[in-house]
Design a protein around this nucleic acid. Structure first.
Lengths: 159, 159
DNA sequence: CCTATGTAGGTGCGCGTGCAACAGTCTAAG
DNA sequence: CTTAGACTGTTGCACGCGCACCTACATAGG
């Protein structure tokens, strides 16, 4: 088959395409491993962990819904439901924003902080074995500099 | 807040964590851009494009369901429904496997090949603007070598 | 031959997600 | 003060996905 239309224009080398495909595969592999591990070990979805994690990185343990949605890579509506679930489970609470009557804070509860602390080792171990170990230290360093250049001021927060 | 439990064990530097998070963000950004562009431009979901693309890279334009599922990063059941839709739209056909009565081939139709050819420029442009342009040529080269080392013999296929 | 184990693909089901639309609120221009 | 436009979070809806389970077939071991 090999439908080779007009490669003259809009060319992307097979090496470049391979980069994109590898990116997809790595992301899928790590994501699924983390999802499974967190689920069986702590009854926590990866998206839920991400929310707790980002909240915990905040000095006050709270974040506006919109802000949080961007950080955890979710649509606003998606975050609304996710916070619904986390609130139902007592891991997060909603709190009104004094300065803006439209705004709501998602705020980490004590139970949420505990749950996060319990789950963190599982999460970190997953990243280590699925991603970091497969990269050599040299490649890791290069990736870090490249990625941090693309997203300046984003390596904040801990662990 | 900053729940800093036991960082002694299972440590992952913030630089390493940033790598993982950046990976997620890049993947999400490119994926959503491609999905949107392909949808408005060619009424084609990204997953559908991936299927057509992988089939077209095959000499006979056909692939076993299982094999295809692995390549497009979908569960077997997920691929079943996706092929259902593509077959309904006439872009793909199912064909029995002579050597194994359990097996089925997903085979690219002429209409599927045409649709792929139409959509390809949109797809490649998306990768170019969302991913490749943001990486310098030097970083691109490094990523390629790193990723291709992690997934040897996977840069086959065209464009 | 016949049985046991593994594999290929499909189905029922529940769930998480995004899009479009909406109400409430803020802000700026007249 | 009023009004137009932008923004925040939520909801109705439809859809795509994975998991668990199932059937059909393949293959090895008796």
């Amino acid at each position: 088959m090999t439908v080779t239309a007009d490669e003259s224009e809009e060319s992307v080398s097979s090496e470049e395409l391979a980069v994109w495909r590898a990116l997809q595969r790595v992301q899928a592999r790590v994501t699924r491993a983390l999802e499974a591990d967190l689920l069986v070990g702590h009854d926590l979805a990866l998206a839920s962990y991400d929310v707790l994690s980002h909240l915990a990185e905040t000095p006050e343990g709270r974040l506006r819904m919109n802000d949080l949605a961007e950080r955890v890579l979710l649509s606003r509506s998606g975050l609304t439901r996710l916070i619904d679930r986390l609130q139902r489970d007592g891991l997060v609470e909603r709190e009104a924003c004094p300065s803006d009557a439209r705004g709501l804070f998602a705020v980490l509860t004590e139970a949420g902080a505990v749950r996060l602390t319990q789950a963190r080792p599982t999460y970190l171990r997953g990243i280590r074995t699925q991603l970091l170990d497969t990269l050599g230290p040299e490649e890791l360093r290069r990736c870090a500099s490249t990625l941090n250049r693309l997203f300046p001021g984003d390596d904040s927060g801990g662990v």
